[in-house]
Simulated scan of single mutants.
Amino acid sequence: MRKVEAIDLFCGIGGLTCGLQQVDIKVIAGLDNDKSCQYSYEKNNNVDFICKDVTKYDFREMKDMYSKDSIKVLVGCAPCQTFSSHTFKVRNREDDIRWNMIDHFLRGIKEIKPDIISMENVRGITKTEIFFKFVEQVKKLGYKISYEVVNFADYGVPQNRNRLVFLASKLGEIFIPIKTHSKKNRVTIKGIIKKLPKIKSGEVYKNDKTHTSRNLSKLNIQRIKQSNPGGTWQDWDNELLLNCYKKESGQTYSTVYGRMSWDKVSPTITTQFSSYGSGRFGHPEQDRAISIREGALLQTFPMDYDFGKEIRIVEVSRHIGNAVPPKMGKNIGICILRHLEEVEYGKK
């Protein structure tokens, strides 16, 4: 088989790159306009980070990066916030600069003409006209495509993370990755972060600066002490409630101020996971939000993944929450290699 080379668009800190390289798919470059991602991307993956605005990028430069006879793979996760469930009621969301990033992914496809394409995004994108047009354009370019919204928990990622996985190939029929887990054997929170050293809110563990959590106020300490695993603010005494939760309309806010459960998968690790009040991000038994390292592990980053010389909690939380879990990247890589083997076998 010819060597397989990939380029990662909208690469962030390198979750997808990390996963692909775990199955020996050589990633030759990553592109992103967020300079703050460069250190982690290059340090952990030993791949060049191109800090450019994709809307102005000349993909002819990228086309020349691939080896002459390689199997060319183009992967990416275009910014997805405008397609998330939280923004579907937002007016004029089409005016958001991130709305048409998928068009620039398509522009890259047209210029590079990769053999294989992989894209990950939030499930909400599948309800948009811009996605349907993207699919039709890719088909017209001669690709066989496959896509589905899947729960990454079914692929060994210890969290409920429903995302679109899109694959396309010029070489033949291609299918989304085969599930590796079911509800009976999913990887739980306990199996990933239980053994990490105990820390208090606001503390930085001496041997790992990434194992740090946000400081909680005295009031929030009282609140999390009354939060049961799997529970939320509904566990609290009345005097601890926010005023909005005392109203009938506030009863619907059931996904905030929650505590995780050891024997379950985590909720989706968002860019706000370090904030106790922004979701079900309370540690299962310690009175704090999960640490940056714990969030990274639940996103399946390796234990030694380096997130910077200085840990800025808000920034690194955003980097981790926006990433494609490396474990899912690995599953996509396995799927691509299996497809190439089938194509090669079919020629014999």
Score class of each variant (00 low, 15 high):
residue 12 G to M: 01
residue 13 I to G: 00
residue 18 C to D: 00
residue 23 V to W: 01
residue 27 V to Y: 01
residue 30 G to F: 01
residue 37 C to W: 00
residue 37 C to Q: 02
residue 38 Q to P: 15
residue 41 Y to C: 06
residue 46 N to L: 12
residue 50 I to H: 06
residue 55 T to I: 11
residue 57 Y to I: 14
residue 60 R to Y: 14
residue 62 M to T: 13
residue 63 K to F: 11
residue 70 S to T: 14
residue 73 V to T: 04
residue 81 Q to V: 10
residue 81 Q to A: 09
residue 87 T to W: 06
residue 94 E to T: 11
residue 98 R to D: 06
residue 99 W to E: 04
residue 104 H to D: 13
residue 105 F to T: 04
residue 106 L to E: 04
residue 114 P to V: 02
residue 121 N to K: 10
residue 130 I to V: 09
residue 131 F to C: 13
residue 138 V to S: 07
residue 140 K to N: 10
residue 143 Y to F: 10
residue 148 E to N: 14
residue 163 R to S: 10
residue 163 R to L: 08
residue 165 V to W: 00
residue 168 A to G: 11
residue 169 S to K: 00
residue 175 F to W: 08
residue 179 K to S: 15
residue 179 K to G: 10
residue 188 T to Q: 07
residue 196 L to S: 09
residue 198 K to I: 13
residue 210 T to K: 01
residue 212 T to N: 04
residue 221 I to Y: 03
residue 223 R to A: 04
residue 232 T to Y: 03
residue 240 L to D: 08
residue 240 L to M: 06
residue 241 L to V: 12
residue 245 Y to R: 12
residue 248 E to H: 10
residue 264 K to D: 11
residue 265 V to W: 02
residue 268 T to G: 09
residue 269 I to G: 04
residue 274 S to L: 04
residue 278 S to P: 08
residue 279 G to K: 00
residue 279 G to Q: 00
residue 282 G to D: 04
residue 287 D to K: 05
residue 293 R to M: 06
residue 296 A to S: 12
residue 302 P to T: 03
residue 304 D to S: 13
residue 304 D to K: 08
residue 306 D to P: 10
residue 314 V to S: 14
residue 314 V to T: 12
residue 321 G to A: 11
residue 322 N to G: 14
residue 322 N to D: 12
residue 324 V to G: 04
residue 334 I to M: 12
residue 339 H to I: 08
residue 346 G to P: 06
